[in-house]
Write a protein that binds this DNA or RNA. Structure first.
Lengths: 153, 153
DNA sequence: CTCTTTATATTAACATGTTAAGTATTTCAT
DNA sequence: ATGAAATACTTAACATGTTAATATAAAGAG
């Protein structure tokens, strides 16, 4: 292979932002996956429940945004979580297009039961990386997100 | 909702590593997606091709690792890329279990054709975030990945 | 040299990611 | 009031993520 190595303006794969972010996320999730598997919920289902714990109730669009899940995925996830009886769905009385989502008592209890395990895993990660470094990394990531957000066109 | 707000040890969703990494990656990929759609390749197919450009040829396991793709996904992707005639597959003569993957001429030309666009997008991101900050962010992420890697059990 | 174990893929099954298309409800200009 | 445009999902179709199961080849133990 004579000349495909140096010529291209493509950077080394390992030193690209998309790959580095992907691998970093994977290395973090690897720690949470055993717990999620035991609980029989997907990573995304867990995120949805977590978001719902922080608010009273919200419509699907806001929920999708808060949980970083696209609308079509969320539609399917809400069906699953409803069948597990962790959430309740109802039409917004003020706007028939919106679906309001809220945790059921069972959903809340599910989260409460899992919270200590989740906190322990996060504490383990903090012990390895350091609280301050995690905080500053998140700050850095938030800043990147803000700056890269496409301006209104 | 009386007491579900303060009690749980669950951190605010927005300030967790998994979410921050997910959103950051999404904000970066948003810039690349239009190009990938124009080229009619998925993000993952693009990663596989990129990795193959950096090496002579390698087996599926190494490729999966380098591209951060799980083996089952890679199996499907290799079929797709082979049908697009971007890659060639052959059995490793020294180990009948392994599949050796390499770029075809068409695959190489495809990447070469797309490289300038890709580089331009990366340059745009660098212009916004700054070269040094991206480098130090990647360093930080690499360090996190290394530290979180599960020790051999 | 067999038999077991390990390694490398692949297939299967189901959940999610992604884009496009479709449906129902609102909004808004006329 | 009415029809066009926008909003909020929902469905569809296909690719990928994830785990478990399977098939085949290689390595090791005896």
């Amino acid at each position: 292979m004579p000349d495909t190595q140096k010529l291209s303006p493509l950077a080394q794969t390992r030193r690209t932002l998309p790959i580095a972010l992907l691998r970093a996320r994977e290395s973090v999730m690897e720690r949470f996956r055993p717990m999620l598997n035991r609980l029989d919920v997907s990573e995304q289902q867990w995120r949805v429940l977590r978001v719902l714990l922080e608010v009273e109730a919200l419509d699907a669009s806001e929920l999708a945004n808060c949980a970083s899940i696209l609308a079509p995925s969320l539609s399917r996830i809400l069906k699953t979580l409803e069948s597990k009886q962790f959430i309740a769905l109802k039409k917004d009385p003020n706007d028939g297009r919106r679906t309001l989502v809220s945790l059921t008592k069972a959903g809340t209890e599910f989260l409460m039961g899992a919270a200590p395990d989740s906190a322990a895993i996060y504490a383990e990660i903090e012990a390895i990386i350091g609280h301050d470094r995690i905080e500053s990394l998140i700050d850095e990531l938030d800043d990147l997100i803000t700056k890269l957000s496409k301006p209104v066109e």
